[in-house]
Design a protein around this nucleic acid. Structure first.
Length: 491
RNA sequence: GGCGCAUUCGUCUAGGGGUUUAGGACACCUCCCUCUCAAGGAGGAGAUCACCGGUUCGAAUCCGGUAUGCGCUACCA
């Protein structure tokens, strides 16, 4: 980065996140928000939230709330706003009027139908599609006639016909566009709302935005914005176009890519801290080895210089792994607190609510080590809560013959009925020697008990599980297992 | 079609002329631990640094071209 640019970027930092409520924010949107927030926090600047709701037709119900919720969930607090562009129409209109008055923009009366057929013809003739500037050169009489006709015009910017427009991108360096490739884009729509191009630069100027950090998809529009700044005699902010986040098919993230809305990740049991850590590493890195960073560490080290230039494919496996790491870092109290809503929601309906707190608290340490997301907690712990286990007898006989299984279960029941202290150590002290007595490998014997106790072949450690379940439940389950075996013998 | 940006293991990335037989992470495989699972530990496999030229004593690193990918090309943002 040249020194002059560096110096500018060190001045008072004011950045904004400017989502459009035409959909729910996905990973890509939120990553942009995160980078802006990190940049502001690192530099002691301001993070401003602005809702770009100028497309009334495509507005999605509830999108604004979801945007605010998502930012709050991730702890991306804003210092100003939310500002709503829909409430600032007067401002944009005045700027558009001024540009028309100065001859830098003009009224266009072309119908959508005409524009559409024009575009179709251009594509057919393999010409670059773009407005043909029909209304830019309207004769005076014709214009007066159209004004009288009652058609509501749009306002278009008079793009220069030749020359170049260039700017310095903080990430990518000098970028140059031929003005001849730019058409006369719309500033003010016929419904009175501004387009992105107009609203964006007016607000960035009025809100004294110092740096525009936005997704790469905006790079191509930037020359228009530069031209507008020039037309208005305003100093443009610094630009940095961030690499996009792609779906596994390497295409721009969209609804097709599964749970793209960020609040879906919350529902699926991801922790905001894990999400922040993961997202920060999607396009930024500290060094060659660090993967786990706290929010404070990210803020401390965040810099534009270390943002990568290449689009990144979202790797869900890695997010899961990281979330598991964060889950295991939680205190038991915190993990339990967070897991309970997922249990209440995800456990079978017949289990009584609210869940018994003391019992649940005993279960959670066994689950915490094994869950990658909170949404997995009900599935992992279901057998602790249900009265009747549902499993196939064949599971009991996985590695053992039925006569031996029956014998082993009978012996276990007899020994356990006499057990005085139902705790992990006592259980192990009784059961481990039994494997020898029964002439079974511990793996086989404990495996049998595991299925009888949990209904599964994989579970938390047997003795811990039995201690938490308690003697009454365990003995009942052992008898049920024995019964299953005898029934199957006759069936 | 035009314009723009990008191109290092499957994925996220480090590396920015000699330190590189290209480092780390996820996923995968093997082994250890072990009552199963998970976690953890130790290993392994996986990248002719897109390709072709050039600059240089020397290039993943600099330059040019090509290819490929992505983005933009709306009275969407």
């Amino acid at each position: 980065m040249p020194e002059a640019e560096l110096a500018k970027s060190e001045a008072m930092v004011r950045v904004r996140f400017a989502p459009s409520p035409t959909g729910y924010p996905h990973l890509g949107n939120i990553r942009t928000a995160l980078f802006n927030w990190l940049f502001a926090r690192h530099n002691g600047g301001s993070f401003i939230l602005r809702i770009e709701d100028t497309d009334v037709a495509r507005q999605v119900e509830g999108a604004i709330d979801t945007i605010l919720d998502s930012l709050r969930w991730l702890g991306l607090d804003w210092d100003e706003g939310p500002y709503f562009q829909s409430q600032r129409s007067e401002i944009y209109r005045e700027v558009a009027d001024q540009l028309v008055k100065e001859g830098l923009a003009y009224l266009c009366y072309c119908s959508p139908q005409r524009l559409e057929s024009m575009r179709r013809e251009q594509i057919e003739r393999k010409q670059p599609p773009g407005y043909d500037r029909h209304c830019r050169y309207l004769a005076r009489e014709k214009r007066t006639e159209l004004e009288a006709s009652g058609i509501t015009p749009v306002v278009r910017f008079k793009s220069p016909l030749e020359g170049q427009t260039s700017f310095y991108d903080l990430l990518r360096g000098d970028i140059v566009f031929e003005n001849s490739t730019l058409d006369d884009f719309v500033l003010l729509k016929s419904d009175g709302y501004p387009t992105y191009h107009l609203a964006n630069i007016v607000d960035d100027h009025l809100m004294v935005i110092s740096h525009v950090l936005r997704a790469d998809e905006w790079l191509s529009s930037t020359p228009r914005h530069i031209l507008l700044y020039q037309a208005l005699g305003w100093q443009p902010p610094q630009f940095a176009h961030l690499p996009m986040i792609l779906g596994s098919d390497r295409a721009k993230l969209s609804k097709r890519h599964g749970a793209t809305a960020i609040n879906e990740y919350r529902n699926q049991g991801y922790l905001p801290e894990a999400m922040v850590n993961f997202l920060a590493l999607l396009g930024w890195s500290l060094d060659d080895v660090t993967e786990l960073l706290s929010r404070q560490e990210i803020i401390k080290h965040f810099s534009l210089e270390r943002i990568s230039k290449t689009a990144a494919v979202f790797n869900r496996d890695k997010l899961e792994w990281m979330n598991g790491v964060y889950l295991r870092c939680l205190s038991l109290e915190e993990f339990t607190r967070q897991a309970i809503p997922f249990l209440e929601r995800g456990l079978p309906l017949e289990i009584e609510r609210p869940l018994e707190t003391h019992y649940t608290r005993q279960i959670m340490p066994l689950i915490q080590e094994r869950a990658k997301t909170l949404a997995e907690v009900p599935q992992l712990s279901e057998f602790f809560f249900v009265d009747e286990l549902e499993y196939d007898v064949s599971l009991l006989l996985g590695k053992i013959e039925d006569t031996q299984a029956v014998k082993a279960l009978q012996a276990s029941i007899a020994k356990l009925e006499a057990l005085e202290n139902w705790d992990m150590a006592s259980l192990e002290a009784v059961l481990r020697p039994m494997a020898d007595e029964l002439n079974l490998k511990t793996g086989v014997f404990f495996g049998l008990l595991r299925v009888a106790i949990t209904g599964r072949t994989a579970s938390p450690p047997l003795f811990q599980t039995m201690e938490v379940l308690g003697g009454e439940r365990c003995l009942k389950r052992l008898r049920v297992a024995l019964n299953k075996l005898s029934v199957s013998e006759f069936g």
